[in-house]
Simulated scan of single mutants.
Amino acid sequence: MAVAVSKDLTVQVLEDVNAAKLTDRQQALQAAIQRGEPKCLGVSQVMLGLMVMSYSIPLHFTELTEVARLGVPWWSGLTFIAAGVVAIILDKHCTMKILQVCLIVSGVSTVLSVVAVIIYSVDIDKNPEVPCIKTLHGGCNENHYTTKLSRGVKSSLLLFTLAQTAISAIVCFLLFRQRRSFGQYTSLTQAAPSTPTAHTAPDLN
C-alpha cells in the first residue's frame, strides 16, 4: 500500500500497485479462459453424458454383457455431466480454485473415458453378431436381432465416448496451460482499491 503525505499533513492512501496487478491478472485469466469457450465445451460434455445414459437403456433389455454389468454408460455419463457442469461454472466464476477443480475433474473424465472406450471395444469384440437363421415366417431368429441391436447401441456409445475423450483432453490442455501461466497468482479473488482515499491528520492544537 502506498502512502503520500502532503504539506498540509493530509495523508493520501494511493492505489496498491500489487493489488492492481493482481486484478489485471484475474481479468487476463478470465479473458484467456473464455477464449477457450469452456461454456460451450461444458454444454457439449453435459449433452454427451445425457446421450450416453439414455442410449444405454436398451442394453438392459437385451443380453447382459460386460458393458451393462459394469454399468459403464452410467458412471461414464455421470462423469461427463460433472465435468461439463464444472466447466460451465468456471465460465461464470473464473478463479484459480475453480480452475484447479475443473482441471482435476476433466482429467478424471479423460481417464475414465479411455477406460470406457477399452471396455466397449473388448465387449464388442467378444460378443459378435449372431448369424441370421431363417424362421418359418421368413425372418431371422430373435437372437440375431438382439445381438445386432446390442452391437449397434454399443457402437454408438463408443463413438460418443470417443468424442468425450477428445473434449476432455482439450479442456485439460487449455486449463493446464492457463494454470501454468497464472499459477503464481494464488489469490485472484482479491480486489484492488478502486480510487485513492484521503485521510486528514488530526488537529493537535
Rank of each mutant, 00 (worst) to 15 (best):
V115P: 08
A2V: 14
S121L: 09
R177Y: 10
V115C: 15
N143P: 00
E15H: 05
F173S: 02
E142G: 00
A20Y: 06
Q164N: 14
G84A: 03
T10F: 01
L78K: 15
L50E: 15
G139V: 09
P38S: 04
E37D: 13
R151P: 02
C132I: 03
T165M: 13
G71C: 13
D203Y: 12
S106E: 11
L175S: 05
T79Y: 13
F173Y: 11
L204I: 04
T62P: 00
P131M: 05
N18F: 15
A192M: 05
A4W: 11
P193V: 01
C40M: 06
S150V: 06
T110D: 14
K21N: 10
G84F: 02
A28L: 09
H93G: 03
Q34T: 02
M1N: 11
S56G: 14
K134E: 11
F176A: 10
M47T: 14
Q184N: 10
T161S: 12
E142H: 00
E142F: 03
R151Q: 09
V114Y: 03
K148M: 10
C140N: 02
D16G: 07
L78W: 14
I167H: 06
I104H: 08
Q26Y: 11
V5K: 14
V153G: 10
V115R: 08
L14V: 01
A201K: 04
T65K: 07
C102A: 12
S109F: 07
H60D: 14
T10A: 03
P38R: 06
T79K: 13
R25M: 09
K7E: 13
C94W: 03
D123C: 04
D24S: 13
K92G: 04
L149R: 11
L158P: 01
W75G: 06
V67E: 05
I124H: 01
D91Y: 08
A83K: 10
N143F: 00
L162M: 15
A31I: 04
S155T: 14
G139W: 05
V122D: 15
V67T: 14
I119D: 09
T147R: 01
E66M: 05
V13I: 05
G77E: 03
E37V: 02
G49Y: 03
L99V: 06
T161E: 09
D203E: 12
L41C: 07
Y185K: 05
S150L: 01
P202D: 04
V52L: 15
V130N: 00
T197N: 01
I167E: 07
L159T: 04
T65H: 02
F182V: 01
S156G: 08
T146Q: 01
M51D: 12
L174D: 05
Q34R: 13
L78R: 14
S106H: 00
I119L: 13
L99H: 03
K7C: 08
L174H: 13
L14G: 07
L78I: 15
A28W: 04
S155R: 14
S168R: 09
V11R: 09
L70Y: 07
L64G: 00
T186V: 09
D16A: 08
T110W: 15
K21C: 04
I167K: 12
Q164A: 15
